[in-house]
Simulated scan of single mutants.
Amino acid sequence: MRPQHIAWMIFLIPVIAVHGAYAIGWWEGVAFQCNPYIDGCTTISRAAREGNAIFFFRALMMPLAALLVIFWYLQQKWLERMTQKSQLHVFILGSIGALFLILYVDFLGTEGDFNRFLRRYGVIFYFGLTVLAQIFSINTLHKLGDKIDSTMRRYIYIQLTLIILCWLLGMGNLLFKEIGFSWADMMENNIEWHFALYMWLHFPFVALMWKRTQFAWQFSHRN
């Protein structure tokens, strides 16, 4: 399997898991029938834990955590090849985020305040550390300047735009909750769906950059 295939899987698996779980809940009549990207009628967690959807969600998201660790290892090695500098921090941040994803998925659908606490902070740190690893990756590539071609720079600018959107959504969510708008909960749900999608959209552009630079990795040697 080529490295770019793993990057594509990191994008496709959560998209299929989240939307597939919501579709199962809709089909079984236990999920809100709306467009969560517009109406904000449900959270990703609530959509994934209703009915049989949770089994579908867990079956995809648990392996995703393992693939994320592999992805961030490959990203570290690729960035080191591009910069000739250590990028261990990218691997550490991304991998810890993947571990928090396991925590979140494992406690999804369970009852109790402590389990709810673990679930909530599991997803917060998964999102936060993943985005932070993405930011460090973008910053590292941006510093290369003219050493990368215009197509690569275009991919980086798209990734940067996605990160800025995630940041604006996060700040907007905090602002709405602090002001105490009556529709703040609905907007928080809406923001969660968009934030997750924009974060996942980062990975296809990594796949395109890996392919463009002919990145290949074998555990026995570096190409």
Rank of each mutant, 00 (worst) to 15 (best):
A133G: 10
A133D: 05
A133V: 10
Q134Y: 02
Q134W: 03
Q134H: 11
I135C: 03
I135V: 14
I135G: 03
F136G: 00
F136A: 07
S137Y: 10
I138T: 08
I138Y: 04
N139R: 14
T140Y: 10
T140N: 12
T140S: 15
L141H: 07
H142T: 13
K143A: 14
K143N: 13
G145F: 09
K147C: 00
K147L: 10
I148C: 06
D149E: 08
T151A: 06
T151P: 00
R153Q: 14
R153I: 02
R154T: 11
Y155W: 12
Y155V: 00
I156A: 13
Y157S: 06
I158N: 01
L160E: 09
T161R: 06
T161L: 06
L162T: 01
L162W: 00
I163P: 02
I163T: 07
I163S: 09
I164K: 06
L165V: 09
L165H: 04
C166M: 04
W167M: 05
W167F: 09
L168M: 09
L168D: 02
L168Y: 02
M171Y: 07
G172E: 10
G172Y: 08
G172L: 05
G172W: 08
N173H: 03
N173G: 03
N173Q: 10
N173A: 02
L174F: 10
L175D: 07
L175Y: 15
F176P: 01
F176V: 06
K177A: 05
K177F: 05
E178K: 13
E178W: 13
I179W: 15
W183D: 15
A184F: 11
D185Q: 06
D185M: 05
M186A: 15
M186T: 15
M186I: 14
M186W: 12
M187A: 15
N189I: 08
N189Y: 12
N190C: 14
N190D: 15
I191M: 13
E192I: 08
E192S: 15
H194G: 06
F195E: 00
F195I: 02
F195M: 04
A196K: 08
L197P: 03
Y198Q: 06
Y198D: 02
M199Q: 13
W200D: 03
L201Q: 11
L201K: 10
L201E: 08
L201H: 10
H202L: 02
H202S: 11
H202A: 05
H202I: 03
F203C: 04
P204S: 04
F205V: 01
V206T: 13
V206N: 12
V206W: 15
A207W: 06
A207Y: 08
A207K: 02
L208S: 08
L208W: 07
L208I: 02
M209P: 01
W210N: 11
K211H: 08
Q214P: 00
Q214W: 04
Q214D: 15
Q214G: 03
